[in-house]
Simulated assay, not measured.
Amino acid sequence: MEPAHEPARGPPARTRPPPPAAARPAPAPAAPRPRSPAEVEARGPEGLLRRSGSGYEGSTSWKAALEDTTTRLLLGAIAVLLFAILVVMSVLASKGCIKCEAPCPEDWLLYGRKCYFFSEEPRDWNTGRQHCHTHEAALAVIQSQKELEFMFKFTRREPWIGLRRVGDEFHWVNGDPFDPDTFPIAGLGECVFVEPTRLVSTECLMTRPWVCSKMAYT
């Protein structure tokens, strides 16, 4: 018997790859979630996190920390400067600085905003005026009725003041005009002194105490 022959096999059938799947569209980006009022308050108008009770939050924490440190250093420097100024003022006061301790020099009397010096020794009007100039003052210029009443309390020795006749009129030594209706003057002399109740003019060579005045220290 002849052996059975197997049927001839042809080349294997080629399989076609499956058709490509249809391209799917990329998913649309999700819409941003609306922030709650609490988040808006926490982040502020620029979207940056604010400082919380336990520290700094967000990507700008190092900037906030730097600003806070700079502010603290600046405040510390100001405090040190103020302390140094107080120490200097205390030292000056302890050394007897007149302008630091009192508005008037020693032996001067304060009234209102002026300092007054009442001399003890008698001199003529011009000598008294020169003495006042050496103390950066002038013979007293009376500018109000209250000031005149103050002068009356310290005029037992009838001192010179800064009022003198020039021609037919009286003028204060600072150049201000004199109002005779406000302060009437008795006498026919040239230079004026103060009695306990009035102003009197006499010869400038007469000797009597004098009163200097100047603005108080501020």
Rank of each mutant, 00 (worst) to 15 (best):
P3Y: 07
E195P: 00
S59D: 09
P27T: 03
T197G: 08
I85E: 11
L188V: 00
L205T: 01
E195T: 02
E169V: 08
P20S: 11
R157F: 08
L48F: 06
A28L: 12
Y116E: 13
A31D: 09
T155C: 15
L48K: 13
K63P: 00
H135L: 14
V166F: 08
P159D: 14
R51P: 01
R164Q: 15
V166H: 15
R123K: 08
V141I: 09
A186Q: 12
M1S: 10
I142A: 10
P18V: 01
E190C: 00
R16A: 12
F178S: 08
D179P: 05
Q130R: 11
E57W: 06
V192L: 12
P177V: 01
G128M: 04
E147Q: 15
M215C: 06
T60R: 14
A102W: 10
V200I: 08
A23P: 09
P209V: 06
E41L: 10
F193T: 08
T69A: 15
Q145F: 03
P18I: 02
V192K: 09
E136C: 00
A79M: 12
H171Q: 14
R164S: 13
E106I: 04
A42I: 02
V40S: 00
T218L: 15
T155D: 15
C104N: 06
L73T: 00
P19G: 05
T69M: 13
A186W: 01
S59C: 05
H133R: 14
P7D: 10
G189S: 07
R51H: 05
T71K: 13
A22G: 01
I142H: 06
E106W: 06
C132G: 01
P3T: 02
P17N: 10
T71Q: 13
E149C: 01
L82D: 01
R35C: 03
E39P: 03
A22L: 14
P37N: 04
F117L: 15
V211P: 02
M89I: 04
V194K: 03
A186E: 13
R198L: 12
L86F: 02
P122C: 06
S61T: 00
P18H: 11
E39K: 03
K114D: 12
E101Q: 15
F83C: 11
E57A: 13
L74C: 09
T218C: 12
P209S: 13
L139F: 05
I85H: 10
F178C: 07
G175Q: 10
L109C: 02
